[in-house]
Amino acid sequence: MNMNMSLNMSLNIPASHESLSSMNRPSSGEPVSRNLSDNHSLGVRVRDLDLWYGESQALKSISLDIYQNKITALIGPSGCGKSTFLRCLNRMNDLIPSVRIKGLVEMDGRDVNDSKMDEVALRRRVGMVFQKPNPFPKSIFENVAYAPRMHDIVSRKADVEALVESALRDAGLWEEVKDKLHQPGTSLSGGQQQRLCIARAIAVQPEVILMDEPTSALDPISTATIEDLMDRLKRRYSIITVTHNMQQAARIADYTAFFHLGEMVEYNDTKAMFSTPHTKKAEDYITGRYG
């Protein structure tokens, strides 16, 4: 995509968005996002994002702004494109050959889909935690230390150890694993593994952390631990999480975006979204009519 054009787009939202925005807030003509977020700096700006898997369109003209040091939850029925959208933010969709993307995803003033953008450099700044914990077949220590070492964030042994400790502390895992750092990461329980994956992501010192249903494979206690963790982490990172658990979105998210059939139907402050949804679809979903 042409750089000029993307700048244009970020300055004034094209007319096609009027309809979307007005749908979000039928009572006023103002775009939703501007209203919610005056005092937060912008993390990721998405404009007019379309995505196709081969012939079928999975994302339709998505536009939203994601704010720094907040938790943004993406909710919606399964197959609505929320995970696909999440994977656009660190270009994990590149791995699927049939995917075609149009539109702007802007971070730090750059279009991430730009051909000059190095996807490895992008992923270094945008960490990701997956639905199922996927620790590497290495020791707990190596799971955390490996990527920072590769990125030359640390090289001296003492620094590596300090980084591993701080990442594990941040992930709330240090007390549990400090005596068995050299056991394989797969020997931990599911919840611990997921926190190990979070520690692994933090250790790279990203700015944004994407979480793709991070607790769906876990038991309620582990889920609560991870939710607490997310709440603490948002002080330093912008967190975008996909969840199909609405209670979870209501508990932890500052903002919530509701996706339906590849469109973003509503994007709002979480409290507002769950108390007074503006659209019928969101209301039906939140009240459990479908989903």
């Binding site: 660190n90 994990m92 791995l95 490895v120 450099a121 992008l122 992923r123 270094r124 700044r125 960490g127 990701m128 997956f130 199922k132 996927n134 620790p135 590497f136 077949p137 290495k138 490996y146 990527a147 590769m150 990125h151 994956c197 692994r200 992501a201 790279v204 994407l210």
Partner: peptide, 27 residues
């Protein structure tokens, strides 16, 4: 080797080569 392993490595900002050398082949 499960794809989740590769994705985990790539999502940390590792290059394809590093993913193969340090994650896929050891697994």
């Amino acid at each position: 080797v499960p794809d989740s392993m590769r994705q985990g490595a790539l999502a940390l900002g590792l290059t394809h080569g590093e993913t193969i050398r340090d994650v896929v082949v050891p697994a």
